[in-house]
């Protein structure tokens, strides 16, 4: 099992070596990058907005119920919701959701290209398929995932505020005060750093699984499932490592 893991890890780094090569045509790579940004990033906005609004609302409800004490001001509920969204929910949970949506998309699309010989066609033309197909996806993810997470932070905070106000769980003014009280800009840096690392994991790991598919349609599905599992493990592991390194 360990030797299999090490072989896979070695293959992953060799794959990255093939991905980060000089493009045959910068213009064509840029066109592909724009397409991928639309496909992987823009199309994820509605999902991120929807999930973030409701997760923010749920966080407020749960925190308000658990801190339902006349000696605890509503401002502290606002602080708890803000920190929860900023530190953990937006970067980590949204990345896990994107691993399912974007990661499986990358894995299955590359797997399909592999089994239908589209990658061979690129290679015969003299185009490096690893670089042409994967580099724009990694670039688009690194650029757009932080934007999605910033969206998620704002939507989560909005959802939390609206739920607290509509359900009369908190005093809106005091709750809102908590959003701004002792705000640490470094937490935004921490959150976005995690997002960039997760974006790289999602795009490169899913691409590695898709790129190495052998067989037919069934193997494409299996690779997609394995990719989501591997990405989830990696995100959780790197979440711990980055938190330990950046917040201690």
């Amino acid at each position: 099992m360990l030797s299999g893991f090490l072989r896979g890890l070695g293959s992953y780094f060799l794959f990255l070596g093939a991905v980060f090569r000089r493009p045959e045509s910068w213009r064509e790579y840029f066109k592909s990058f724009v397409r991928e940004t639309e496909l992987l990033g823009m199309s994820s906005i509605p999902l991120v907005v929807f999930i973030s609004l409701f997760m923010g609302a749920v966080l407020t409800i749960q925190t308000a119920i658990n801190l339902d004490d006349p000696f605890i001001p509503d401002m502290y509920i606002g602080i708890a919701v803000r920190e929860g969204i900023l530190l953990e929910f937006a970067p980590t949970i949204v990345s896990l959701i994107l691993a399912g949506k974007v990661g499986s998309n990358i894995s299955s699309s590359l797997g399909t290209m592999r089994v239908t010989e589209q990658m061979d066609a690129l290679q015969v033309m003299g185009i490096n398929p690893a670089s042409y197909l994967v580099l724009p996806k990694i670039g688009a993810s690194l650029l757009f995932f932080p934007i999605l997470v910033i969206f998620s932070i704002f939507m989560g905070l909005l959802g939390g505020y609206l739920a607290g106000d509509w359900l009369h769980l908190v005093n809106p003014d005091n709750f809102l005060m908590g959003y701004f009280d002792e705000f640490q800009p470094y937490y935004v840096v921490y959150s976005l750093t995690k997002t960039v690392v997760f974006a790289f994991i999602i795009s490169s790991v899913s691409a590695w699984y898709g790129y190495h598919v052998k067989g037919g349609a069934v193997e494409v599905g299996k690779a997609s499932t394995k990719a989501v599992v591997a990405m989830s493990f990696s995100i959780i592991l790197f979440n711990y490592i980055l938190t330990d390194v950046m917040l201690q």
Binding site: R35, T112, T116, E117, Q118, D120, A121
Partner: peptide
């Protein structure tokens, strides 16, 4: 190619 290998995108 056998399966044409046209780019579906």
């Amino acid at each position: 190619f056998q399966a044409s290998a046209l780019f579906t995108s």
